[in-house]
Design a protein around this nucleic acid. Structure first.
Length: 298
DNA sequence: AATTCGCCCTGTCGGC
DNA sequence: TGCCGACAGGGCGAAT
């Protein structure tokens, strides 16, 4: 479930590789993954040059430049739940490389495997490739003129990026948009601020000592400031650890992150709180599995 | 108007 | 051993 820290990890791993690379061919293997754009447009991208990768919330923004600049386009990638975007070095075999598990699942042997779950392959000049895989197909690809990014519905809905958002900005967004929902529901709302998902919402609530089920309009201002800081701390740790790899997540080089080893509450329902030893509670809040400590979070 | 719910999709896991 | 249901969950659009 790539959230902001995971997408940032992918961005950072692609940053040394991508800039200057020339797109030779955009092979879209599963057309429905392309939410915005047409096969014809993908063909017209050939010859474009990648700029340094950007990110907003959980979205990766890959700008493709060509002369004149008015023809610049952007490939927007959302990794959904199980998506990976990897940079395959020149010479890597294009053949399917996977093993069949006892249940019949095709587990990729390498991160850049071109198999039934590979939905897009971007050939780059010199033989390298960008490979997009997503077994559960919740991810999305968008290709559009760069100047249209701010008005594209999916992106226009997003609030400011959560990472580095000043506490006072977080507070003003909260006061304007949080409503009377559960705190967790507001944290997951990408229009309030973009990038927080299920893992980091729970982690931030724990760090702030706030119950994820408590109502947004009943959180005092000082505690809200604590929450703003906790969000930054949770995201910072995730980025520092190169993302949370419970199962599928890998960065652009196919490397897993280590943040799953440092999570305080997510995925630990029924286990002992690392701070006070009480049994961590688990329940569905905002239609998401939510874990918190009844002792530490009031 | 604000909030919740159902759906998409495929693989994993536990129960019988 | 094998089948089957529950579950995971981001974001959209419909329903309340």
């Amino acid at each position: 479930m790539p959230e902001l820290p995971e997408v940032e990890t992918v961005r950072r791993s692609l940053a040394p590789r991508l800039p200057g690379a020339v797109l030779v061919r955009f092979d879209l293997r599963l057309p429905r993954m392309l939410e915005v754009g047409t096969p014809r447009l993908l063909g017209a991208l050939a010859g474009s040059r990648f700029a340094p990768p950007r990110r907003h919330g959980k979205y990766l923004l890959l700008d493709l430049e060509r002369e004149p600049a008015a023809r610049d386009h952007t490939l927007v990638v959302h990794l959904g739940m199980t998506g990976t975007l990897t940079w395959s070095p020149p010479g890597a075999p294009a053949v399917d490389r996977f093993q069949r598990t006892v249940t019949g699942y095709q587990r990729a042997l390498g991160p850049h495997s071109i198999d039934r779950h590979t939905h897009a392959v971007l050939d780059l000049e010199g033989g390298a490739r960008l490979v997009f895989r997503d077994p559960r197909t919740f991810g999305r690809l968008l290709v559009l003129p760069t100047r249209d990014l701010p008005t594209t519905p999916r992106l226009a809905r997003l609030g400011p990026d959560a990472w580095g958002l000043p506490p006072e900005a977080f507070l003003s967004r909260w006061e304007a948009r949080a409503g009377r929902r559960a705190v967790k529901a507001a944290l997951l709302d990408q229009s309030l601020c973009a990038g927080i998902g299920n893992i980091y919402a729970d982690e931030a609530c724990f760090r702030a000592g706030i119950r994820p089920g408590s109502r947004t309009d009943r959180v005092s201002r000082p505690r809200l400031l604590r929450l703003a800081d906790a969000v930054q701390a949770a995201l910072a740790q995730g980025i520092e650890n190169c993302g949370t790899s419970f199962r599928d997540f890998v960065d652009g080089d196919g490397s897993a992150g280590s943040n799953q080893e440092d999570l305080r509450v997510y995925g630990r329902g029924g286990e002992a709180c690392l701070a006070c030893g009480r049994t961590l509670a688990s329940a569905a809040i905002a239609q998401r599995t939510t874990v918190w400590c009844p002792g530490c979070q009031r």
